[in-house]
């Protein structure tokens, strides 16, 4: 029987992601975030729903737009914010930043600065789970733009012939950087999956409960050894490709339409309709706000990352 995700828990995860990313948007505008960041505002239901189907032994490979995946996977907010702000107490010691948040003990194999690169890594994790007999599965998140990358095709083919427990999750937001992805990819993902003989399911990526149910169904099939699955979540990118993106390529209507699909408002309404008290929702919102505020305060107070610690970090310390 498919395990049902707790709808309030899904909302909590989405609130945490939204709160964290909106805070990052402000911090970025204020110049507190080095480099550049890609926000997943509006896409939270995919991260929350998919990760709700996973257990602690499972592995996740993420993307450049990976904050939601990390938070939904349970990466501690303190370490997360400290990393994105480049502090010594970051999960990666400030050496990776937004595009490389990883927490290997939680099976979070990292956000990735290379489009499509997470798929073969998750493929390898799935192989390791199979060979080691851990019972774990691996998930690769990727965007619709990544469908044009060869590594993704190689990975789906390999997962199919080896029948590996790999779930490929496409976050289809319609955009590949500054271009509509339908101008870049000739085949639909469903046709593409069918060609490799891999079951493909499409889900409303703004509906966390639907994503969670579809992911749970797929993950159970993976655990039964039925081979890889593809899950395509239609969603919307509310903001620019990166923070500060003037979006000259996008008309204002499209951005406004995107914001009309709010997974959080939707989940909230469903909970209220199901009889959950508004006060419980306010409490969840306050909790997310407080957690994010505390993590930011912690990151600001943390010492800067130290070059002396990083200098010899490319290799394991020599055994003496």
């Amino acid at each position: 029987m498919t395990r049902m995700a707790d709808p309030l828990a899904l909302l909590r995860t989405m609130l945490l992601i939204r709160e964290a990313e909106m805070a990052l948007a402000r911090l970025f505008a204020d110049g507190e975030v080095p480099g550049f960041i890609h926000l997943s505002v509006g896409q939270e239901a995919v991260a929350a729903g998919v990760c709700s189907a996973l257990g602690p032994q499972d592995s996740v490979a993420s993307t450049h737009r990976g904050h939601g995946h990390a938070i939904a996977r349970g990466v501690a907010l303190d370490g997360f914010f400290a990393e994105v702000l480049g502090r010594a107490s970051g999960v990666c010691g400030g050496r990776g930043g937004s595009m490389h948040v990883a927490d290997l003990n939680r099976g979070m194999l990292g956000a990735n600065g290379i489009v499509g690169a997470g798929a073969p890594i998750a493929l390898g994790a799935a192989l390791a789970h199979r060979i080691r007999g851990t019972g774990g599965v691996a998930v690769a998140f990727f965007g619709d733009g990544a469908l044009a990358e060869g590594a993704l095709h190689e990975s789906l083919n390999l997962a199919a012939i080896w029948r590996l427990p790999l779930l490929l999750v496409c976050e289809n937001n319609g955009w590949a950087e500054f271009s509509r992805s339908d101008t870049q990819v000739a085949a639909t993902l469903s046709a593409w999956s069918a060609a490799y003989g891999v079951p493909h399911a499409e889900v409303d990526g703004n509906d966390a409960a639907a994503v969670a149910a579809a992911a749970a169904e797929a993950v159970e099939a993976l655990r039964r050894g039925e081979g890889p699955r593809v899950l395509e979540a239609r969603t919307h990118r509310w903001r620019g490709h990166f923070e500060g993106d003037p979006q000259r390529y996008r008309d204002a209507e499209d951005a406004a339409r995107a914001a009309g699909h709010d997974p959080i408002a939707r989940s909230r309404a469903a909970l209220l309709a199901a009889g959950v008290a508004e006060s419980a929702l306010h409490a969840a919102e306050a909790e997310a706000r407080d957690a994010v505020a505390a993590a930011i305060a912690g990151a600001r107070a943390a010492p800067a990352a130290e070059w002396a610690d990083a200098r010899h970090g490319a290799y394991a310390p020599a055994e003496s």
Binding site: S59, A61, L104, A117, P120, I121, A122, L123, G124, I131
Partner: peptide, 11 residues
């Protein structure tokens, strides 16, 4: 890529 993922996952 699979070698990288497998190496990060215990092989």
């Amino acid at each position: 890529g699979a070698a990288v993922g497998a190496a990060l996952t215990g092989l």
